[in-house]
């Protein structure tokens, strides 16, 4: 009974985390599902978003301005990966790894700006000192400062904007690039440009998520994005496995990535209550993604042999 109560008690926290990471998962959905590229920049750009936002706030900027700066920084990171991939011909995965690695150094520098230090691994933005947009402290409050009041509309706005964008000529050309590059080029689409654009949009969203996260937890840290790509993938895949059959509309598919992120954090909360250490989570996340990626592969394999068997009997 105690266990159940403490689990229920931690549900709002899981939901809040899930919504914030849901925006990140949408970013991963754009590269992984629409563009068909596994972009590893996100581990770096999530922290860049967090660092940039925390820096802005600690320098006394309006939190919304700091958020915008964070998104721009993330988009810039995506631009670098995109150019490394298209202009320099580096394979997408490696291009992402290179940017991610470079961002580690950059993030340490960003967080040190104005502090007199050369590098800084953590930058605190306490809700007591700064007018934050949201904080985990009020996650159970029934007041206007409850993070859900901001997070739910934000997520819905992001989904609505992307739904509109991917319905435009430009958005369609991006989808075509991911679906079939040869066809896209034959129809006059500059696939290098659309790939760069996709990476820019995706990393902008990831930095957005990082910026919200740094405010939510009251600090940005240089390793806050470590393994982010795997969490994002987990969210996308969990969402697809559970809702893929029901959610056919594009907006709902984006929503299912958010729901996937929420479920991910509920499961994480559960296993933490069961006695696992937070440091075990990376292992667990990797296992979840590996298992969920294996299932469709094996399903396909066994389904095929099944059909062959039928044919032999016929």
């Amino acid at each position: 009974m105690d266990f159940l109560l403490s689990f229920l008690n931690s549900m709002p926290g899981a939901l809040g985390q899930g919504l914030i990471w849901g925006i990140m998962a949408i970013g991963v959905y754009i590269t992984y599902r629409i563009l068909d590229v596994a972009d590893l920049t996100v581990d770096g750009s999530l922290a860049t978003g967090g660092a940039m936002c925390a820096l802005g706030i600690s320098l006394g900027w309006n939190p919304w301005v700091a958020l915008a700066a964070a998104i721009l920084a993330g988009m810039l990171a995506g631009l670098v990966t995109g150019l490394l991939h298209t202009l320099c011909g580096i394979p997408a995965i490696l291009a992402g790894i290179l940017t991610q690695l470079a961002l580690y150094s950059i993030n340490l520098r960003i967080m040190a700006i104005g502090s007199g230090l050369t590098t800084k691994a953590t930058l605190s933005v306490s809700v007591d000192k700064y007018p934050l947009m949201l904080s985990s402290r009020y996650i159970r409050d029934l007041s206007a400062s409850n993070p859900f009041i901001l997070l739910v509309p934000l997520v819905l706005i992001v989904i609505a904007l992307l739904y509109w964008f991917f319905g435009t000529e430009l958005g369609s050309s991006l989808r075509a690039t991911g679906a079939n590059q040869n066809m896209a080029r034959a129809q006059g689409i500059n696939t290098s440009w659309t790939k760069v654009l996709g990476l820019v949009v995706s990393n902008g969203l990831v930095a957005f998520s990082g910026a919200l996260l740094s405010q939510y937890q009251g600090s940005a840290t240089v390793d806050m994005g470590r393994g982010a790509i795997v969490i994002g993938l987990a969210a996308v895949i969990i969402g697809e496995v559970l809702l893929g059959k029901v959610f056919r509309n594009f907006a709902l598919k984006l929503l299912s990535a958010v729901i996937g992120a929420i479920i991910y954090y509920i499961v994480i909360t559960l296993v933490l209550r069961l006695g696992l250490e937070t440091t075990d989570l990376k292992l667990l996340t990797a296992l979840v993604v590996a298992v969920f990626l294996t299932i469709p592969h094996w399903k396909g394999k066994f389904a095929k042999t099944g059909k062959k068997g039928d044919a032999a009997h016929a």
Partner: peptide
């Protein structure tokens, strides 16, 4: 609709 826009600049107008 993608083919209909071959040779044109693709903008933020509706894709179809």
């Amino acid at each position: 609709a993608l083919a209909r826009r071959r040779g044109q600049r693709r903008t933020l107008r509706p894709g179809i």
